[in-house]
Simulated scan of single mutants.
Amino acid sequence: MALLDNNKDVLPLSSIAELLTAKARTLKMYEEKGLFPKKKELKKLYSINDVQIISFVHYLASVKKINANGIKYIIEMLENNMDEKNKADFLEIVEKKLEKLSAKEIVDVESM
Results as ranks from 00 to 15, higher is better:
67 N>G: 10
30 Y>P: 00
71 I>S: 06
60 L>A: 11
102 S>P: 04
33 K>S: 12
27 L>F: 08
63 V>M: 08
87 K>G: 06
77 M>K: 15
11 L>H: 11
59 Y>P: 02
45 L>C: 01
103 A>E: 15
23 K>C: 07
96 K>F: 01
64 K>W: 00
46 Y>W: 10
30 Y>Q: 04
40 K>F: 03
35 L>G: 06
82 M>E: 03
21 T>E: 13
56 F>K: 03
105 E>K: 11
43 K>H: 09
3 L>F: 12
82 M>S: 05
103 A>G: 02
8 K>G: 12
5 D>G: 06
10 V>M: 11
60 L>E: 09
27 L>Y: 07
55 S>D: 02
46 Y>Q: 11
58 H>G: 05
99 E>C: 06
9 D>M: 14
10 V>C: 11
101 L>S: 08
81 N>P: 01
79 E>N: 13
6 N>K: 14
49 N>E: 15
58 H>D: 15
97 K>Q: 15
8 K>I: 10
44 K>D: 08
19 L>T: 10
83 D>K: 00
93 I>W: 00
56 F>S: 08
44 K>M: 08
41 E>C: 00
66 I>W: 04
90 F>A: 07
35 L>D: 09
65 K>D: 13
92 E>L: 01
11 L>N: 05
65 K>E: 13
76 E>D: 15
36 F>P: 09
42 L>D: 10
85 K>M: 01
66 I>Q: 07
78 L>F: 14
58 H>S: 13
69 N>T: 03
65 K>Q: 12
40 K>N: 14
74 I>H: 09
2 A>K: 12
77 M>S: 09
106 I>C: 05
62 S>Y: 03
26 T>E: 14
94 V>S: 09
47 S>D: 12
72 K>D: 03
52 Q>M: 10
105 E>D: 11
87 K>S: 09
32 E>P: 02
100 K>E: 14
92 E>Y: 06
71 I>K: 04
33 K>R: 14
92 E>H: 09
55 S>K: 05
14 S>V: 15
13 L>M: 09
106 I>Y: 06
47 S>Y: 07
2 A>I: 07
44 K>N: 03
32 E>R: 13
92 E>C: 01
99 E>I: 01
41 E>V: 03
42 L>I: 02
7 N>T: 12
12 P>S: 03
94 V>N: 05
38 K>T: 09
49 N>M: 13
88 A>V: 00
106 I>W: 08
59 Y>D: 00
32 E>S: 15
95 E>Q: 12
69 N>L: 05
33 K>L: 12
48 I>P: 01
78 L>M: 15
97 K>V: 14
5 D>W: 04
103 A>T: 06
22 A>L: 05
16 I>M: 04
47 S>T: 12
21 T>W: 06
29 M>C: 07
62 S>K: 10
35 L>K: 05
106 I>D: 09
12 P>C: 04
21 T>C: 03
26 T>W: 04
58 H>M: 00
32 E>Y: 07
91 L>M: 07
